[in-house]
Design a protein around this nucleic acid. Sequence first.
DNA 1: GTTTGTGAATAGTTTCACAGCA
DNA 2: TGCTGTGAAACTATTCACAAAC
Lengths: 214, 214
Amino acid sequence: MRHQRIPDETVRRLPVYLRGALHLSGRGLESTSSQELANLIGVEPWQIRKDFSYFGGFGTRGVGYNLDNLIRHVSRILRLDATQNAVLVGVGNLGSALLAFPGFRMYGFEIAAAFDIDKRKIGRRKSGVLIEDAAALNRLSARGIRLGIVAVPEAASQGVVDTLAEAGVKGILNFSPRCVTVPRGVKVITIDIAMDLARLPYYIPAGRAIRQCV
Amino acid sequence: MRHQRIPDETVRRLPVYLRGALHLSGRGLESTSSQELANLIGVEPWQIRKDFSYFGGFGTRGVGYNLDNLIRHVSRILRLDATQNAVLVGVGNLGSALLAFPGFRMYGFEIAAAFDIDKRKIGRRKSGVLIEDAAALNRLSARGIRLGIVAVPEAASQGVVDTLAEAGVKGILNFSPRCVTVPRGVKVITIDIAMDLARLPYYIPAGRAIRQCV
DNA sequence: GTTTGTGAATAGTTTCACAGCA
DNA sequence: TGCTGTGAAACTATTCACAAAC
């Protein structure tokens, strides 16, 4: 049913399905089933079928899903069917790791520009990307980059986000643990590493571990 | 109502509230209201009150929340009231950034050990932490570390997770985009950076929110 | 026979509105 | 009066069971 609201949770899972499909396709498979894909990525088969059904379904009953077809459809929905250029702001420890991070390419992402305020870094290259002066960020708009990755200290994040938004960036992946305000039409996704670690102890039973009897 | 099931979403938000409370306390404030805290972190006041109500509520009607009291309660619930030692496995680009990452300390985390398989790194120090031989990971159990951070290449993650679980680690923050299997009693939280970026383009044409934190 | 696609049932979460207390 | 705490209502998401299609 194409004319239905898509649950946010479904959108969150689509990249997982895409990765699984790419993985199976890379192993030489031509097609898969909701059961096989579910086993691979650790969800339930009906969840996959339900999620796909919001977009009309990509499979063939009694047969399964053709992988090329599946990959094409999901990529299109996520708008990952063409290379997406991104700009990185903040080439510190985390930013440098992101420049070297191999995982972006699989989805068609390319870090096309990097900015920092540290004069010692400006003009150098990291992982093949030239580090430019963050003071020149406002001239970014000419390059038509619509995605930004923000890896600056907490205190600087709001300013960077403002500048990116003015430069035409429409989507921001924010690694700063600060709630940022953006204009309408700009979407922010925050990754807060410390916060994810912080809820881990909650789930761990208190006290010393009992010896495991297997 | 102390004897009620706590929603996962509530647990996910508790570290956000804790950070907000620590921030206000650091600014010298003695107390706050659900309204003030909500404005700071970008949620609605009733969400905060509802979440706190699952634990009986920490406030005073007509007055608000005493910050010390709030911080003490939330820290206790999350088991962050004593220093939590963690072990890092994989001191590559991302692992090194995590060693240098200042955000863990606020919640009382301490990276107490680091392991890698690269002979050139073993024996050296990064951000003050000695890098040990990953082959010796099985001797970790003597140190009583219950939290692990896994920042190894995708193909190695399951093996590392297995070894950590055998060594008594009960909670794992996993940066590998691979579904891992763990024994009962071990909790895994996965941070998949590329996947969070991958759902950003979906929202770009129709984006609308003004204040966003997640 | 097999596997998808989907309405209906169930479960979980957010939002509301106001009672309860300082 | 002001702000918290909370049951009830509204909303959202997951799970089920089976009809439909190959």
